[in-house]
Each structure stands twice: as structure tokens, then as C-alpha cells.
Design a binder for these strands. Structure first.
Length: 252
DNA sequence: TTGTCTACAGGTTT
DNA sequence: AAAACCTGTAGACA
């Protein structure tokens, strides 16, 4: 069993507090105590070989509750063919709901689907500003995944799409039901017996922000496994930076 | 014990 | 080469 060997990270462990954001702070010096959104300290640093994440609470419980309800009211999820992916040649309806919002004209593609960004809603712009205020990074796109209960899930994958800016972290905001989240190193997938790199597991809480810094998505897969005990809904927003004009091209 | 749950391995085809 | 999927199975747990 890998259970006892797994690296488990408890949210907000005092000894893991980090008072400053470690990932690039270019935009940081311009802001001061008049910040509309203070950083979600204490940050918790999560590190492993090639993995670099920061985790913290971005919203109070009251505000997170409000945002969850607003998103349940506002967000339009894809249906029909746009809610299907092609894996190993077969079409599947994804075991969750998905939506994309972002700057005009942006398209996000994976596993045979091409999802055009809808225009930002007020709530999504508010959350995006909060993430930018907390991280110093700007984002032009968000992928929303809605897991109605513990049976909804997402399989192991990397966010390694070509159109993503490789220097920009991916910012993952969680609202609603807390869910387990698992990272696995790519070598641990192929050669599980040889590879000693243990999975990294954490729980993503209501109102939390997980920053996945480069090169995390180059080496680590992540998934949101089934948890049958969970009976309520989680909404996840992953803010990204898509490089404009960088069309998908075949590798050399 | 026994039913429920999870982790893991392995399959598919472009 | 690698995949944002699935199912089956064995072992853990209550």
C-alpha cells in the first residue's frame, strides 16, 4: 500500500506558514497596504522533486459561501458534444460539468474538445481580481469544473496544453465541498515499482487557493479522485494565461 | 463477516 | 509516445 508512504499535507499547519509569496513577484512591488485583496497568508509551501505549489485560504467562509451561490446562479456549463472528450479513440461524457470564461476570442482545447471562452461575469472578474491581488499574476482565462458530489471526478492529467504560458502558474480556487487532490510524478506512473517518488496528497478546502508553479505541470499529473462519502457540490476555478496568437502546432 | 470504499493495474486507438 | 476515459480486482476498513 502506498497509503502510509504518501506525503500528506494538512492545510494551514503553523510550521509551514510562509509570509511571502515565493513565486515571481514582478507586479507585487506596485501594491501596498491599500490592496483591495490582501494575500491569503499564511501560505503553505508544498514541494517535491519538480513540484512547487503554494496553498492558502483566499476567502473567508462567509465570502466563499456567497461566491459559491453566485456562481451556481451565473455559470453556464457546456452540454452535449461540448461536454465530451475523446480518449483512446472513444468518446466519453466527462464525469463533471465544465465551463470556460475569458478574454474575447480565447479557445482552450484538450482531448479533442475545443471550448470557446464566454465573456467574464461580474463574480468571475471579482474572483480573478482577488487571485491577482494575492499572487501578483494576471490571468486571461478560467476553466471551471463543477463536481456535483463525490462521484464526479477527474482522472490523472497534466495541464500541459501548448497554448498555456509556461512561465505563468495555474491558480486553482475551490468553493463548496472539500475534496482530496492527488499529485503523482510521471515516472511513478510508468514505472511504479522502480520509482520511489511518492504521491503528494492534500485536501482543497472551501475558499482555498492552490498555486501550481512551473515546472509542476511538466513532471506531475494531478487528479480529483472519487470520494463516495462526499454528498455536496464543489466548484473549482483554474485561472490560466493563454498565449494569444500561439496556435496549436504539431511538435517538431 | 460482509458490504463499501479505495488504490492500482491494465485496456482501448488515434 | 502518450492520452482530462473506463473497468476489474484485491485488500483495507468498519
Amino acid at each position: 500500500m502506498s497509503k502510509e508512504g504518501a506525503v500528506c499535507v494538512e492545510p494551514n499547519t503553523p510550521e509551514n506558514q510562509h509570509l511571502e509569496l515565493l513565486c515571481t513577484g514582478e507586479l507585487r512591488e506596485a501594491v501596498d497596504e491599500e490592496d483591495e485583496f490582501p494575500p491569503p497568508i499564511p501560505w503553505q509551501k508544498i514541494e517535491a522533486l519538480g513540484l512547487d505549489c503554494d496553498y492558502g485560504l483566499l476567502f473567508s467562509q462567509e465570502e466563499a459561501n456567497r461566491l459559491f451561490l453566485q456562481l451556481e446562479d451565473e455559470v453556464e456549463y457546456f452540454t452535449g458534444e461540448q461536454a465530451k472528450v475523446q480518449v483512446f479513440g472513444k468518446m466519453h461524457s466527462v464525469p463533471r460539468k465544465q465551463a470556460t470564461y475569458g478574454d474575447k476570442g480565447l479557445v482552450y482545447s484538450f482531448s479533442g474538445v475545443h471550448l470557446a471562452a464566454r465573456v467574464w461575469t461580474p463574480t468571475l472578474e471579482y474572483i480573478r481580481n482577488a487571485v491577482t491581488g494575492a499572487t501578483g499574476h494576471t490571468f486571461n482565462f478560467v476553466l471551471i469544473n463543477r463536481y456535483k458530489d463525490g462521484q464526479d471526478h477527474i482522472g490523472e492529467h497534466r495541464d500541459d496544453e501548448r497554448e498555456l504560458d509556461p512561465s505563468c502558474p495555474i491558480a486553482s480556487v475551490s468553493l463548496g465541498a472539500a475534496r482530496d487532490f492527488v499529485f503523482r510524478h510521471k515516472d511513478a506512473r510508468k514505472e511504479p515499482k522502480k520509482c520511489q517518488i511518492e504521491p503528494v496528497k492534500l485536501e482543497l478546502a472551501h475558499g482555498s487557493l492552490l498555486l501550481m508553479n512551473p515546472p509542476t505541470n511538466t513532471y506531475w499529473y494531478h487528479s480529483l479522485p472519487v470520494r463516495r462519502k462526499v454528498k455536496t457540490t464543489r466548484i473549482n476555478l483554474t485561472f490560466r494565461r493563454i498565449v494569444r496568437g500561439c496556435q496549436k502546432r504539431k511538435k517538431d
